[in-house]
Amino acid sequence: MTLHLRVGFMPLIDSALIVAAKDEGFAEVEGLDLELVREVSWSNLRDKLNVRLLDAAHMLGPAAVAATLGIGGVRAPMAVPIALNLDGSAITLSLRRFEELARLAQGDLANPMVSAAALAALVARRKASGLPQLTFAAVFGFSSHTYLLCEWLAKGGLKLGDDIRFEVVPPPQTVEALSSGRVDGFCAGAPWNAAAVAAGIGAMLHCGVDLRRDCPDKVLAWRADDADQRSNAVARLNAAILRASDWVGDPANGERLALHLSRPDRLALPAELIEPVLRFSLSQGGGRPPRKVERFIRFDREALRPNPAHADWILARMEAAGQAARTADMLAQARAMFRPALFMDSSS
């Protein structure tokens, strides 16, 4: 019997596996009638999942942990039977700030140590001349994007929130926020860095993988009680996503995937902007040629295995960012949110 499932997503390339599961018919093969619902905020995805307006949601790993523990809002226990990707984000600066950094850099700006030191010099100069603090944005407070920004800034001895103002800007608004000067830089998932470069207003400085490889990113979240009680639905959606993972992994399918993602009800961006990112060819802006980044984003089966160790990293980063103080109990709950057992059921 066909099962109807509503899955919410944000317009990002890392929604590729659920989009491909639907548009390439992998969900149908598993007896699923998949309805994809685009949302405007991660808060909406969390809240709509919580009240079952959605069956499952494309979710930031750290946001799922925060919801499960009730940090910063509703306590909405979630379960993750499969991840949707690893890596895939990048840091982009306005052209003006990029040029300032290039002038201050002592060495190769592509080296995060060098760029962070240059940023620290810029921050110090602005402070000395009484200029306002720089503002950087990430796509959500509880996100690997926030934590990657923190890690990069720390290399220059800077602290997000103290030395640099922090703002949250949802992915589709990043380009506008950068062009209006509301933010000086942002860390977001693909293809929003490429979109800022294409708009002629930004320069990509670092990819997430320059700072950290195999960084936890998006997961597929279910309500914890649903994951337990609707194991058949969970297994079927997992199986469809695993099929999609094999299909997405074949470079020959890049153009088709770019077309699926570009649709007005998906990312609503030109396929020509998306397709190069799928080939790991990233436009950089600032007068530099596109950069080929090995394994810029991972969609392979191994990347999708829910990893309880990610809970350790996420909670440590939350604590470092001043979002929460860890306890052993919180760690246990966060680890339990990742369900490798459910993943193995569907891959066998």
Partner: peptide, 18 residues
């Protein structure tokens, strides 16, 4: 309203409450 993309920014602003 839930269709307002600023909800995430709002939530974070309150979280930090600086």
């Amino acid at each position: 309203d839930l269709e307002n993309p600023s909800r995430d920014a709002l939530a974070d602003m309150f979280l930090v409450s600086r």
